[in-house]
Design a protein around this nucleic acid. Structure first.
Lengths: 267, 267
DNA sequence: CATTGGTATTTAGTCAGACAAATAGCGATC
DNA sequence: GATCGCTATTTGTCTGACTAAATACCAATG
């Protein structure tokens, strides 16, 4: 390797600054590489953006410098930028350069963006927002699922719950079953736009259980509540399903909140 | 081996012969948008995919042929593919080619994907799904907004409604004000993930009004209902805001449904 | 005959360097 | 002080070559 090189400096947010400034970072493309170069570059930059390392409005280095510093070709770098642009994280225009977009333009519910968010530990605020979304969407989805589910979906939910209580949430298999249950509920709404939210819901579910695992004291057995949701959906009782899911998600929300405030007892 | 037929998608001898059929069919790129080539290619292919012209599982022509047929360089075509892949519409692997992903992977709530959906007239089913999502999200958002809105947001809602009744929904300015109102409600929830849904909500709003405009008989003045939502939010009455929004969205849903069934009196 | 292993082929992936187009910013002009 | 036009910078596009990975094929093997 050619000696340590300053990488990924961004020019000042303000204008008129010449390049200057030895802003520097250290870059290594080792961990979590995703095979294709454009993918891993997108991931690296994406994480840097959502973690706040680059702020909205910041201008990235021009393509030639950036690709050089990352030791990749300009075309690979450009494809990475196209990926980020497609997810609303950056915008590029000739002469103006590529700049980080306003947060309101980010596709926060995109699976990859979400994964990048969770790469670094997500902020409490973000987690709260995700849980609120869950609290809004899932009970309504359960109600719709009660009216529309077919037998196959019902069967999938049942086996998911059985798997879940066999493996418990301490194992990855158990957590996968948990996510599978919630995902199937979404699917059973027969509403495609709604189902798109499964990745976001899944992320919230995953982090709920992670917090719970960290903080065993809070561990409350969620299996019975899951079965109540299932029973209501199986019986076709929309309102009952809504309420059961409301309770289920509400308890998860409480647990997560408690775990968070215990970790950082602020405010 | 499921579904044996490997379909070659892009023009040439296959399915869509919308464009010039000859190998050298010179067709000019659609005008009026997206000066960047990779953007317009992504849009063209994206529309072809979401409109069902290419089915999930279909394999696109290889990059060399495809880029030749579109009269663009391979790099431009590849950047377009990266965009589509970022939105979950396609997946590409060496030797296997680039194929259309399963619908469940599509980012249906992505603003661009949504726009592509609406480029061709969207299916009734899809529209229904979007409205259901609206019915789930917006009342809850209104309730949160009632508790969290700040004065500036309130002011923005007020001016939006004033603009709306000045210009009426017959003008683009009026419709923009309508969308602005709903968007500000989302923003006032102080929930970033929730706000991300504004593009989807906005799309549903836009099409509701479009249908209404087509079918003047159904025209029902939505302004008073909007003011009721506003008043509840201004007063900080969460439950009242939820109910008012519920009614507002419900009426819009009814109108759209009526207009649709009038257009295509099926079922 | 089935299985295995290597090899050819196909395709996306990556790279390099050149040129074109667009525009932000600045200086000249009125 | 406002407007206009120039220019330097940056992204956008193109070309053509090479690399790497995944599949299909075929031959050798048990």
């Amino acid at each position: 390797m050619t000696g340590g090189d300053a990488v990924l400096a961004i020019s000042g947010g303000g204008v008129g600054k010449a390049k200057g400034s030895g802003a520097d970072g250290e870059f290594e493309r080792e961990e979590g590489f995703s095979g294709r170069i454009h993918g891993s570059i997108a991931r690296t930059l994406g994480i840097a953006i959502v973690s706040g390392q680059y702020q909205p409005g910041d201008v990235l280095n021009n393509e030639i410098d950036a690709s050089e510093q990352l030791h990749v070709s300009r075309s690979a770098y450009r494809e990475a930028i196209r990926i980020l642009a497609a997810k609303g994280l950056v915008e590029s225009r000739p002469k103006a350069g590529t700049r980080v977009s306003a947060r309101s333009r980010w596709s926060l519910l995109d699976p990859e963006v979400l994964a990048w968010f969770f790469e670094a530990e997500p902020s409490e605020e973000f987690l709260t927002g995700l849980h609120e979304l869950r609290m809004i969407v899932e009970p309504a989805a359960a109600a719709l699922a009660a009216e529309r589910r077919d037998d196959a979906q019902l069967e999938r939910m049942r086996t998911a719950l059985i798997q879940m209580q066999q493996h418990t949430l301490a194992t990855e298999a158990g957590r996968a079953a948990d996510r599978d249950f919630h995902d199937t509920v979404l699917e059973a709404t027969s509403n495609e736009p709604l189902r798109t939210l499964s990745s976001s819901i899944g992320a919230a579910v995953r982090w709920t259980t992670i917090f719970k695992q960290r903080d065993r004291e809070l561990a409350r057995d969620p299996i019975p509540d899951h079965w109540k949701v299932f029973d209501a959906i199986a019986a076709g009782r929309a309102d009952q399903a809504r309420q059961a899911m409301e309770r289920l998600v509400g308890l998860a929300q409480d647990d997560t909140r408690a775990a968070i405030s215990r970790r950082s007892p602020s405010a």
